[in-house]
Computed example of a mutant assay.
Amino acid sequence: MASSMAGDSDDERARWRNENWRAGVERLTRERPHVSTSWLDAGHRLVVTHAREIARLIRVAAH
């Protein structure tokens, strides 16, 4: 999961969106404890900017 899905701006709207995103992920892990999540210090483009780390996390989770 990207830690700052709406970017790292100190803008009130971005801050609210990021907090909302994190709360949603926390809710997911509470309600579906079998779902594995990992936080990456990234934004909305994490699949582009962190592709290798995402691939590594998937490989680890698959074993």
Rank of each mutant, 00 (worst) to 15 (best):
W39T: 07
R27E: 12
R27H: 14
H63K: 12
V35F: 08
R22G: 02
W21L: 03
I54G: 03
A6K: 06
S3P: 00
R17T: 07
N20R: 12
S36E: 12
T37W: 02
T37P: 03
H44V: 04
E53V: 12
S9P: 12
G43S: 07
M1E: 03
A42M: 10
A23V: 06
M1G: 03
R15Y: 03
E12K: 15
A14Y: 01
N18E: 03
D41V: 05
P33Y: 12
N20W: 15
D11K: 15
W39S: 00
H34Y: 15
H63F: 08
R56K: 13
S9C: 13
R15S: 00
I54D: 04
V60H: 07
T49P: 04
H44G: 03
H63S: 09
A6M: 07
T37S: 06
R56P: 03
I54Y: 06
L28M: 13
T29F: 00
L46Y: 05
I54W: 03
A55L: 09
D10K: 11
A2T: 00
R13M: 11
S4D: 15
V35Q: 13
W21E: 01
T37K: 00
A2F: 04
R22M: 07
V35R: 11
D10F: 15
R32C: 14
D11R: 15
A14Q: 08
I58P: 01
M5N: 03
S36K: 14
L40K: 02
G24V: 11
S3C: 04
A6R: 07
I58S: 00
N20K: 14
L57K: 07
L57G: 08
S36I: 10
S9K: 13
S36Q: 13
H50R: 11
A6V: 08
A55G: 11
R22Q: 12
R32D: 07
A51K: 02
R15E: 02
A2P: 13
H44L: 05
R59T: 13
M5E: 01
L40M: 10
R22S: 05
E26K: 15
P33T: 08
E26C: 10
R59E: 14
R27S: 10
D10E: 09
A23M: 11
R27C: 13
D8R: 14
R30P: 03
R30S: 11
E12L: 07
A42Y: 06
R27Q: 12
N20G: 00
H50D: 02
G24S: 15
E53I: 08
T37I: 13
A61D: 12
A14K: 05
V60F: 10
S4Y: 13
A2Q: 01
T29R: 09
R30A: 14
L28F: 08
V35N: 09
R22P: 02
W16K: 06
A51R: 11
A14D: 10
I54L: 05
S9V: 14
L57R: 09
A42P: 07
A6Y: 08
V25R: 06
H63C: 07
M5I: 09
R45L: 04
R13Q: 08
V60Y: 09
L46T: 06
A23W: 11
V60E: 05
I58E: 00
D41R: 01
I58D: 03
R22E: 05
H63N: 07
A23H: 13
D41W: 09
R13D: 02
H63T: 12
R45Q: 06
